[in-house]
Simulated scan of single mutants.
Amino acid sequence: MIPAGHLVVDDDLARAQFWFWSYNIWDIARSVMTGDPTHLPDRIELECRARAAGARPGMSSFTETELTGLAAAFEIYRAYRRQSLTPQDVVNTLFLPQLLQVELGFQGHGERYPARPRRDDGDKHECRMLGHCLAAHRHFSDSRPSTTDQIYRMACHRLDGLQHGHADQLIAAKYRQLVAAYNLRHPTATVPRLHVPGRAFPPSNRLVPADPPSGPTTLTLDDKDEQ
């Protein structure tokens, strides 16, 4: 399912994407289950797979840039054959830096899409990262987190560290730049952060608070959360 307001996706592109990624996901699963990253596809295999999936010139998901980036991403994991990357390592060093760059692009810094291309009247500078963090908090509080929620919970904990100076200063600066750019685009709804503070999530040894409040609660993003 694509997000509300998303541009129309060509049926041939959708079919090719699903075919292409069904094999990639199978390879990822084999790599994880066997502990052997050589199951992950290299650039040549990705190109062959794209052709078999029905990729055509002009399809945005199969451009030279896209396939080069995807091959480079898989190669990172292939290179860790004798080492162990924890999920938090992956989020901190691989996932989050790229996510911040993508989100910053949609706040007016992107060359191709300086705003989200939408077909509805929705916010063209919406921060999807924030939306995923809020959804993760809600699902953890309801004791039904998905894999995506777990990833964004780890991202929230990492972003806490970025805000408080206990992290890579280049990434921290990128996050501050993103918050500033978002607030510039939303002058009547500024926020001090674009994630849910890690302390707002239920503790890791339980998914619901020991003493839940009797009435409804609302999570806010203002600085009162820091007190």
Rank of each mutant, 00 (worst) to 15 (best):
L100T: 10
I76H: 04
M33D: 10
E47H: 07
A135P: 11
D10H: 09
S22M: 09
H157F: 08
P209F: 09
A181M: 02
R78D: 00
Y152D: 00
E75Q: 12
E126C: 10
P192M: 04
P41I: 00
L194P: 02
T218Q: 15
E64F: 10
S84P: 06
A16L: 03
E47M: 12
L194F: 11
A155S: 14
L94Y: 03
L7E: 06
Q101T: 08
T65F: 04
N205V: 14
T188P: 05
H166F: 09
A73P: 10
G105Q: 01
T190P: 10
T86A: 04
P117S: 07
V91C: 00
R81P: 07
T218I: 14
L159V: 00
F140G: 00
Y77C: 13
D42K: 05
T93R: 05
R185I: 15
D89S: 04
A136Q: 00
A189N: 08
T217I: 06
P203H: 08
A173D: 11
G122Q: 01
D149K: 02
T68A: 05
T217F: 13
R82A: 14
P37W: 01
H157I: 12
Y80P: 10
Q83K: 05
D168M: 14
S204Q: 07
M154N: 03
Y175D: 04
H164F: 08
R118S: 14
A181S: 13
A55W: 00
A173K: 06
L134C: 09
R82E: 15
L178H: 07
P187T: 12
A210L: 11
Y77G: 07
Y77V: 13
A50R: 01
H164Y: 03
R118G: 15
Q83M: 07
V8F: 15
A200R: 02
A180D: 11
V208L: 13
D27I: 14
P203W: 03
Y80D: 03
L219M: 08
G215I: 05
I76R: 03
R43I: 06
T34C: 07
R176Y: 10
Q163C: 06
P87W: 10
Q101G: 11
